[in-house]
C-alpha cells in the first residue's frame, strides 16, 4: 500500500476554504483535472490525459470539514482511500491536509503529485500566512 500526504497552510478561515473545496463536484476548480461529474454518492473525474476515474464519495462531513472518497471499478487501482481535511489554526488561518492510500503503491506518488498541485493552487488563491514561508 502506498501512502502519501500533502498539505497547505492558508491565510483564510477554515470555513471559507471548506466552502470552496468541500463541494465534491468542484474538484476541477482546484485540482489538476479537467472535469468533475457527480451523481448521488458517485463521482467521475477526468484527467488531462483523458483517463476517467470512477469514485465512491464516502464522506462529506461539514462539521469535521472532512471529505473522503475511493477510486472504484478500476482495472489498475485495486484499493484506494483519499481524504482531505480542513483544520482551523486560528480564526483567520487553516491547514488543508490531503492524504491517500492506494494499491498499487506506485500510484500514490502520482496522486500525491496532483494533490501537491492542488495545494499550490490553494496557496495562490488564499495566500500563505506570514512566517510560514513557501515550498
Amino acid at each position: 500500500m502506498g501512502s502519501v500526504r500533502r498539505h497547505a497552510i492558508l491565510n483564510a478561515s477554515a470555513a471559507l476554504v471548506w466552502e470552496f473545496i468541500g463541494r465534491p463536484g468542484a474538484l476541477h476548480e482546484w485540482f489538476p483535472i479537467t472535469a468533475t461529474r457527480v451523481e448521488g454518492d458517485k463521482r467521475w473525474i477526468t484527467l488531462p490525459t483523458g483517463i476517467v476515474f470512477e469514485e465512491d464519495i464516502l464522506l462529506v462531513d461539514h462539521d469535521l470539514r472532512r471529505f473522503q472518497y475511493a477510486i472504484t471499478n478500476n482495472p489498475l487501482i485495486t484499493s484506494h482511500l483519499g481524504t482531505y481535511d480542513v483544520i482551523e489554526l486560528t480564526p483567520t488561518t487553516c491547514i488543508v491536509v490531503y492524504s491517500t492510500n492506494v494499491e498499487p503503491e506506485v500510484f500514490a506518488l502520482a496522486i500525491g503529485a496532483a494533490a501537491g498541485e492542488g495545494m499550490r493552487f490553494l496557496e495562490k488563491k488564499y495566500g500563505i500566512p506570514k512566517n510560514e514561508g513557501t515550498r
Partner: peptide, 9 residues
C-alpha cells in the same frame, strides 16, 4: 522531469 504523469503535470 518524471515519466509517469497521468495528471499531465
Amino acid at each position: 522531469e518524471p515519466f509517469l504523469d497521468p495528471f499531465a503535470l
